[in-house]
Every structure is written in structure tokens, then in C-alpha cells.
């Protein structure tokens, strides 16, 4: 049996509220598995327990009950994080370091050194398109650039699992699209991605599987196509159909007692429309 990249078993996290007798249940009896190579999306509104779950998986917060494992190793073991890269929500790195210095710092923390570190740093800067900004301090980076350097630091030691907490939060549609492409690139390389988001359209585009959290409870879980397909409905998309053809189809449907629920022109997404209209401008130097 293949070891899951992430295994969460009966996880519960309760935060005591200081000076009050009440407690906050952030995650309640959550179980899920992420298979190696999969892109898994953890969805839910703000405060639904997504970030807490990710933090427990990364050993930053301890569970009240249950356990989490990364490639079979308990999350509480520091060594389990050797195979993991993490990008927190809205990260601020050390702004006095340059892009290259930042990657070298995180590389050293992962045990890289010498020529290997130098090569990985250059590769990662190229992967996220920041070669030209490598010697600029992070204090002068835009939000999108910070997110990209964050992704580069998460990938510096070639992890088998990448955990992304709201990777496109606060990033403009173009930057968001770049991050989406990077995630798909990671998937192509066989890297497992676990991400949290509340941007449903984006998750739908890139995730193989999703789990929906509400008030700390996993309310839906499964493959994206399975969850989204409406079993008793079929969509036909026709090109250059004349009114006569449509009338014939409608008559045929009428004869077979099939109800036509709607007829419309397919629409592009707002994201695509925005990108086409604004066309990418070169990054300001």
C-alpha cells in the first residue's frame, strides 16, 4: 500500500479562550488523506479551521486529539518536515535580505550548502521568474513577488510535499495566474500540493480533490469532478448552430419528454476576460 503524503486521523483542536470559561473548537474530528502527487484543496470560509489544520500538519500547533502524519512520520517529529515546503498566508520575509540571500538562508536550514545551494538558489529564482530581482532587498518587492519568493523558499530543498496557505491572497489576477501555473508545474513534477483557499474558481481549476470545512467540520470531500457534476443533467455546446437546428433539437427533446432547462451562450471567466483586457505588462524594475 502506498503511504499517503498526508494523513489526518480524527483530528480535533480546541483553543481555550483566556479569562473565559468557553473554548473555541477550531477543528472537530477531521480525517482525510492526500495521495502522493495529488493537488488537494482545503476549502472553507474564514475561521473554518483550514489554517489550524495546516499548522497542525506542519507541527506548528499541537492537536488536542487525533494525529497527523507526513509520508508516514508523525508531524510532531521535526524530521517529518524534511520533505515539506510551506508558504504561509501573506508572508513577510526578512526584508533586509535580498532574494538570493533569502533562498540561501532557507536552503541552509534544510542542510544544503556549497555548490548545491548555489545551484538550487539559481534554479528556484528562475522557476519563479525573479532572476532579475535576485540582488534586490525584499523590502522593495511587490506583493506578488513576495509570494513568488515565498514559493521559491518552500521549494528550495526539493520537497515531496508543498503546503500553501491561501497562496493567492492579496495577489492581482495576473500574479494569481502565475502562481496557479507554478502549482500545475509542481504537479507535473510529481510533487504533492496541499493548499487552502476560499477562491473556489481557482481551486476548481487546479485541484484533483477537495475537502470543504465549515466550523471545523469536514462537510464534503472528494474528487472535484465528482463533486461538481450534476448526474441527471447533460450539457451540449454547439458551434454555429442555426435557429432552425436549435428548433429541431427542441422539438426532438419535446418528443422524448426531456425538459430543456436552459439555453445560453457559453461565457468566458471574469479572470480570463480581465487578463485579456489588461494584457500583462512587464514587471517594474
Amino acid at each position: 500500500m502506498i503511504e499517503p503524503a498526508v494523513a489526518v486521523n480524527n483530528l480535533t483542536k480546541i483553543f481555550p479562550i483566556p479569562f473565559r470559561r468557553t473554548k473555541l473548537v477550531a477543528v472537530r474530528d477531521l480525517s482525510l488523506e492526500v495521495a502522493p502527487g495529488q493537488v488537494y484543496g482545503l476549502l472553507g470560509p474564514n475561521g473554518s479551521g483550514k489554517s489550524t489544520t495546516l499548522k497542525i500538519i506542519l507541527g506548528l500547533v499541537s492537536p488536542t486529539a487525533g494525529r497527523t502524519k507526513i509520508f508516514g512520520r508523525d508531524s510532531r517529529e521535526v524530521g517529518s518536515r524534511e520533505a515539506v515546503g510551506f508558504l504561509p498566508e501573506n508572508p513577510y520575509f526578512y526584508k533586509y535580505l535580498t532574494g538570493a540571500e533569502t533562498l540561501r538562508f532557507y536552503g541552509k536550514l534544510c542542510g544544503l550548502g556549497g555548490r548545491e545551494l548555489k545551484t538550487r538558489t539559481a534554479e528556484m529564482l528562475q522557476l519563479v521568474g525573479l532572476q532579475d530581482a535576485r540582488d534586490r532587498r525584499l523590502g522593495g518587492y511587490s506583493k506578488g513577488m513576495l509570494q513568488r519568493i515565498g514559493l521559491a523558499q518552500a521549494l528550495i530543498q526539493e520537497p515531496k510535499l508543498v503546503v500553501l496557505d491561501e497562496p493567492t491572497a492579496g495577489v492581482d489576477p495576473a500574479g494569481s495566474r502565475e502562481i496557479r501555473d507554478l502549482i500545475l508545474d509542481l504537479k507535473g513534477r510529481g510533487i504533492t500540493v496541499l493548499l487552502s483557499s476560499h477562491l473556489l474558481a481557482q481551486v476548481q481549476e487546479i485541484c484533483d480533490r477537495v475537502g470543504i470545512l465549515a466550523h471545523g467540520i469536514l462537510v464534503r470531500e472528494g474528487k472535484v469532478q465528482d463533486l461538481l457534476s450534476i448526474e441527471n443533467q447533460t450539457e451540449l455546446i454547439l458551434e454555429d448552430a442555426t435557429p432552425e437546428t436549435l428548433a429541431q433539437i427542441a422539438a426532438l427533446l419535446d418528443k422524448s419528454q426531456t425538459r430543456l432547462i436552459g439555453q445560453r451562450h457559453p461565457q468566458t471567466t471574469l479572470e480570463r476576460l480581465f487578463l485579456e483586457a489588461t494584457a500583462r505588462l512587464p514587471e517594474k524594475e
Binding site: L58, E82, F86, L87, P88, P91, F93, Y106, L109, A154
Partner: peptide, 14 residues
């Protein structure tokens, strides 16, 4: 505050 600590402790750093 800057969440930089998450990126450090999410690496194999005790």
C-alpha cells in the same frame, strides 16, 4: 508577527 517564524519552523529546525 510577520509569520516568518512559520517558514523557519516548517523546515526541519528544532
Amino acid at each position: 508577527e510577520d509569520r516568518t517564524i512559520y517558514t523557519i519552523l516548517a523546515k526541519p529546525v528544532p
